[in-house]
Design a protein around this nucleic acid. Structure first.
Length: 506
RNA sequence: GCCCCCAUCGUCUAGUGGCCUAGGACAGCGGCCUUUCAAGCCGUCAACAGGGAUUCGAAUUCCCUUGGGGGCACCA
């Protein structure tokens, strides 16, 4: 009975990940509320969720709030908001409850305390009275002498008792190896001698991640631990703890890390790293989900588009890549564009509205005129990569603002001069004034022949009118744009353009 | 410095000894369409890090080198 073992093990430990499918799949996402929900973290949560859903298992959110100093107010809410935005729901955890709670580690302190003490009593751990100053100095010397930094085991055999300021350390076996089977990386072996006596309980009475995560994963009956690769090197420590406690370890799978464009771990300087930033920028959650799924996982040699249901259906750990992946924002943009284009006009309007309300200049009257917006939106639907950029100068401002701001030169075609341009607009103005209908077809039937009449190419005339009407050279189709803008606005803007040309003529 | 992981187009990847003169996608480039911009369609550029070994045969197996990443806290 391993539970009764009194001395640290010294024989080689082998932990083969038995895929015992008779046990229910229970996986967890265990964020620490120390900052915004990083896309890398969320991707880990997402893969856990996919694995749970694929196997009809349970997805648990557990909050690892054991670092009092680093806890950030609002971080927890942000993390949950990020999950909810993507449509990742959890069966147990904050707000959801469950039979294995509490799901906040800060509320489980007595458990960790009791179990850590038990480890001390049974000879697997010991109290350490070393001050942080001493440890810092020790580390500095080790680094200076190019030695691997690590606790020098000063208190290991002193048989010290608990005291204020003391910590509990694990008595790492000095010999032998720890081997385990990782579902993504195969067998991984560490020499125990390369591991130091790590801290289990901090002096403030909180457990370290190593202790708390092992105890909770066991108590919460976690079957598989899918976590980022940065945890790979602390897995042997966890295994030693499972062994010391006599717990059966879960099956491990260490996910590839997401990198920034310079191949280092994705961080702030690479741009947006919080999933909520993407929400605010108007990316579609379903596109984000699809994109994230393909960062480190693939289905076959050609499928790029997956609905949530398809992802759940096809997801498997075997198809997770072993290689870290660079976050390719260009591809995200493309994918988001494809999802936007698939939206029905109604749904597009529905989802775009909040972004227009937020992003259009303040002088535009709120609330926006919905029926007008619904006329504008189809013209920009296939041009937007995100909902957020819908409310940009380039895409929609000119539909809503009163006064256009652009240089007169923009009106003038390369092969024409200022005078000819003004003359062209003069004629156009007259023709448009005569119109009783102002729809795209009518407009084309009037303006297209006009170019012949004036002796310019259609594109030259249209280009100048386009700029006069929108202040831009790249816009949705001219006649449809004019139809939406209406006769009055178009006439007014052409007049303003003519004035602009004549004013600066000298 | 020590430990661990990884290595196919610029990027995400397919590829589990012969189907590979290496496939797809994004980006790039060229073209078509066209009133501009998009979208769409067609085409094109572009990779098995290097060296050994195993084998009739290696992107696929093994070893070494190199390169990249991660870890080495009273942080998670």
């Amino acid at each position: 009975m391993p539970w009764l073992r009194r001395m640290p093990v010294s024989e080689n430990q082998n932990f083969q990940g038995e895929t015992n499918m008779t046990e229910p799949v229970r996986v967890r996402y265990a964020p620490s509320p120390t900052g915004l929900p990083h896309v890398g973290n969320i991707r880990t949560a997402f893969f856990n969720w996919l694995f749970a859903r694929h196997n009809n298992g349970t997805f648990i959110v557990r909050i690892e709030d054991t670092d009092v100093a680093r806890t950030v107010p609002g971080a927890l809410e942000g993390i949950l908001e990020g999950l909810e935005w993507l449509g990742i729901d959890w069966d147990e955890g904050p707000r959801a409850g469950g039979d294995f709670g509490p799901y906040f580690q800060s509320q489980r302190l007595d458990i960790y305390n009791k179990m850590a003490k038990e480890l001390v009593e049974r000879g697997f751990a010991y109290y350490c009275h070393c001050s942080s100053e001493r440890l810092e100095k020790m580390r500095a010397e080790q680094t200076a002498n190019k030695k691997p930094p690590g606790y020098d085991r000063c208190c290991r055999d002193l048989g010290l008792g608990g005291a204020p300021g003391a910590v509990i350390r694990y008595k790492t076996p000095l010999e032998a190896k720890t081997t385990f089977h990782d579902l993504i990386r195969g067998d991984v072996t560490f020499e125990n001698a390369t591991l130091d006596d790590f801290v289990l309980m901090k002096s403030d009475g909180y457990p370290t991640y190593h202790l708390a995560n092992v105890i909770d994963d066991h108590l919460m009956k976690i079957s598989h631990v899918l976590r980022a690769e940065e945890w790979l090197s602390s897995t042997p420590r966890h295994l030693m703890l499972y062994n010391a406690f006599g717990f059966k370890p879960p099956i491990f799978a260490h996910l590839p890390i997401i990198l920034g464009s310079d191949r280092s771990k994705l961080s702030k300087r690479h741009g947006a790293v919080s999933i909520l930033e993407y929400k605010e920028q108007g990316y579609l959650p379903e596109a984000m989900m699809n994109f994230l799924a393909l960062l480190g996982w693939s289905f076959d040699d050609k499928t790029e588009t997956f609905s949530k249901e398809e992802l759940i259906k096809h997801f498997s750990i075997e198809r997770i890549s072993q290689t870290s992946a660079i976050f390719n924002k260009e591809k995200l943009d493309w994918m988001d564009g494809t999802y936007i284009r698939k939206l029905s006009p109604h749904e597009f309007a529905e989802r775009a509205m909040p972004f227009l309300e937020k992003g259009l200049p303040p002088e535009v009257k709120r609330p926006l005129d919905i029926s007008y917006v619904k006329k504008v939106l189809p013209l920009v639907h296939e041009r937007a990569k995100t909902l957020g950029e819908l409310a940009s100068k380039e895409l929609t401002w000119f539909f809503f603002i009163d006064k256009l701001d652009y240089p007169a030169e923009l009106l003038i075609d390369k092969k024409l001069d200022r005078k000819a341009t003004a003359a062209m607009l003069d004629v156009a103005l007259v023709r448009l004034d005569e119109l009783s209908a102002f729809d795209a077809d009518t407009l084309e039937s009037v303006l297209r022949p006009l170019s012949d009449e004036i002796g310019v190419k259609a594109g030259q005339l249209f280009g100048t009118v386009r700029t006069a009407i929108t202040g831009l050279t790249a816009t949705p189709p001219l006649f449809q744009t004019m139809e939406v803008l209406g006769q009055n606005t178009c006439m007014k803007r052409i007049k303003e353009a003519i004035t602009k040309l004549k004013e600066n003529a000298g």
